Simulated assay, not measured.
Amino acid sequence: MSINFKKFSPRPGIVNKQGRLPDPSELVCVEIPKVFDQCLIKRCLVYGEGPDTNTTDCELRSNPLKDPKRYIGSRDFNVKLISAEEIPNNGNPDFKKIILSYMISFYADYIDADGITRSELYEINRTDTIGKFYCPDSIAQISTSCIHGHHDKDLDCNILKLEMVADALAGELLKDERGNDVLDITLGYYIIVKCELVVQLLIPTYDYCPVPGEPCAEEEPEDVCVQFENAPVPKFYPDQNLRPLFSESDDDYEDNN
């Protein structure tokens, strides 16, 4: 079923399968970073002395701690691209070998003997190599300048971007070879490496984004007794960890007879 344009309100939303959008009102050129290639780096790292490998890192051990009692968790994960070396492919210069150097930082929280929560900063420096990555150079030379300032910016170079999802899978308090209390972290992370280039794209549009007609909603505090009355009844007993009394093979035998 088609949609009547007069009844159509252009706004961000999901396009359902029951209908189709009306014809756009115009085609416009927009200048945006376009992703030309991307790949995934997936690592699970534990502490290990010596050179870093695909499974170990020497920086996943804390400095000596004072009377730690319990590891709580890790937070504030961040990734920073330090450098990127691009080596052109002999057969096709648009494909490159990329050597990435980046740093992952986060805080690990623990409780000491006095019951005080303390934090330890970890900075993990890593280097990864992407053997073949489509990262073409811009043909046009682009430069922009701010009218009210002197902030010149070149847009003709490709952009390497890192996007990360990370978590501390485990934390273990132990003593090192010198008898100091340390915290070893097991780090798991996914990094998407993207090659972007600023280009002009021709896209269909309907109109400018509509201005909201209603003010931002304010959250009114709800009475705690009302929350309690509306909440479901909690479980009184934990789930039982039971195994079936009879195996599936016994059921199949009865069905066949």
Rank of each mutant, 00 (worst) to 15 (best):
V28N: 01
Y208N: 12
S101P: 00
N180M: 07
F5I: 15
D52R: 15
P68Q: 09
K97T: 13
P88T: 04
V224W: 04
P24C: 08
E120R: 11
D152W: 07
E172M: 14
I142T: 14
C29I: 01
A84H: 03
Q141A: 12
F236G: 15
Y134N: 07
Y107M: 04
P93W: 01
L245R: 13
S119W: 00
D181V: 02
N90E: 09
E31G: 03
T56K: 11
I124L: 05
T55Y: 03
E49H: 08
D252Q: 11
T127I: 15
E86S: 08
P24G: 09
V211P: 00
K34S: 13
F36Q: 07
L169M: 10
V226N: 05
L242K: 13
L121S: 02
L183A: 03
A168G: 10
V35E: 04
E222K: 14
R243S: 10
I116F: 07
I185H: 02
D167C: 12
Y110F: 13
D239V: 09
I147L: 14
V15S: 06
D52L: 03
V165D: 08
V226A: 12
P88Y: 05
P234D: 10
G73L: 05
D167S: 14
C146A: 11
I41M: 03
V182Q: 06
P221V: 08
A108K: 01
D207N: 15
G131W: 08
Y253H: 06
A113E: 09
F236I: 11
L197E: 08
L174M: 07
L201F: 01
P24R: 13
K6N: 12
V211T: 15
S25E: 03
C44A: 12
K235C: 09
M164F: 04
F5P: 09
L202W: 02
I72A: 07
L81K: 14
D223A: 10
C225K: 15
I116M: 10
E31I: 11
R75C: 02
T117A: 06
E31S: 15
D52M: 06
S101Y: 02
P51Q: 12
L183C: 07
P221Y: 04
P24V: 08
N180E: 06
K6V: 04
E26Y: 13
V226E: 11
K161S: 10
E219G: 05
P212K: 11
H150G: 02
L100F: 05
Y102D: 01
D67F: 11
E222A: 14
R70Q: 10
Y189M: 04
S83F: 06
